[in-house]
């Protein structure tokens, strides 16, 4: 590296400008969570208080929405972990007619706009006379959660050499032992990362949820409703802070987990 690889001032300014543009609104959300003004957003906030945290903790509707979101995210993630891993194993491990097509079709739900997924699921549910419930939300979320888990798992399966499985069998391990002692340890971090990402995505999903929910209110839906009728506005901001923490931490963890997993090889060539 040469010593004159420092970026010019203009580029630095542009980078800071971009970051400011991206992050300032989020900082504002945090700031208004502590504002004393509850009816409107006023700049600068007239005063600061911690009382909204207490108010939020005391509101039953927040807890209900939060509980529903956690439940939906957890069940969708578990469903996705099972189905996504199995699909990834099939696509990465064996050759069969139409394999490439299947691997494309699996990824399609995340490439499609959420609104299309939402509409198609809604019409499918009403065609089949399935009443809208927590379970229809779970099904809706599972569509994109499976893709996330699948993508993580398939990449790791491809990096994990088939020779490792041969070696385990050769040394006397039956199918169950091979899975437990060799396959699972090699894909575990990828599954954990995929699961965390899936959980975070499900937790803040709005569009598909709007189409697949009955009168259930997940946390993002609750926030949307709160903004429409201004009452104890900073409560919404406190909840938003909580959502940021719940979604950002798993995503960061997933990023570091898959990064550490880079050297997990045993590669073919």
């Amino acid at each position: 590296m040469h010593s004159d690889n420092r970026s010019p001032l203009a580029l630095k300014l542009a980078a800071f400008g971009g970051l400011f543009f991206l992050l300032a609104p989020i900082a504002l959300i945090f700031l208004y969570a502590f504002s004393t003004e509850e009816k409107s957003f006023q700049w600068p906030p007239p005063g600061y208080t911690l009382k909204w945290i207490g108010v939020t903790l005391g509101r039953a509707d927040v807890w209900e929405a939060m509980a529903l979101s956690v439940k939906v995210a957890a069940i969708s993630t578990i469903l996705a972990l099972i189905l996504g891993t199995l699909t990834a194993a099939a696509v990465a491990r064996s050759k069969f007619f139409g394999r490439e097509t299947i691997s494309l079709l699996v990824i399609l739900p995340i490439a499609l706009p959420g609104i299309i997924t939402g509409i198609s699921l809604r019409s499918a549910f009403s065609l089949l006379d399935i009443p809208f419930s927590t379970w229809t939300i779970v099904l809706g979320h599972a569509t994109f959660c499976i893709v996330i888990v699948y993508n993580n798992a398939v990449a790791r399966f491809r990096r994990t050499s088939g020779a490792l499985i041969d070696a385990a069998m050769d040394l006397g391990a039956d199918g169950v032992q091979t899975f437990r002692l060799v396959i699972l340890p090699n894909i575990a971090t990828a599954l954990l990362a995929g699961g965390m990402l899936a959980f975070a995505l499900s937790f803040d999903e709005v569009i598909v949820t709007t189409f697949t929910a009955g009168n259930q209110t997940t946390l993002p839906i609750w926030m949307l409703e709160e903004l429409v009728r201004p009452r104890q506005r900073p409560v919404t901001n406190v909840v938003a802070m909580a959502v940021v923490l719940v979604t950002v931490l798993p995503i960061l963890a997933a990023y570091y987990l898959t990064k550490d997993g880079e050297h997990t090889a045993g590669s073919d060539k």
Partner: peptide, 20 residues
């Protein structure tokens, strides 16, 4: 007879050592 029931062991081309 599956591989795990044979009294035969293999040294693989790229060793296939378990990375974990």
């Amino acid at each position: 007879v599956p591989p795990y029931l044979r009294n035969v062991n293999t040294v693989f081309q790229n060793y296939a050592l378990f990375p974990h």
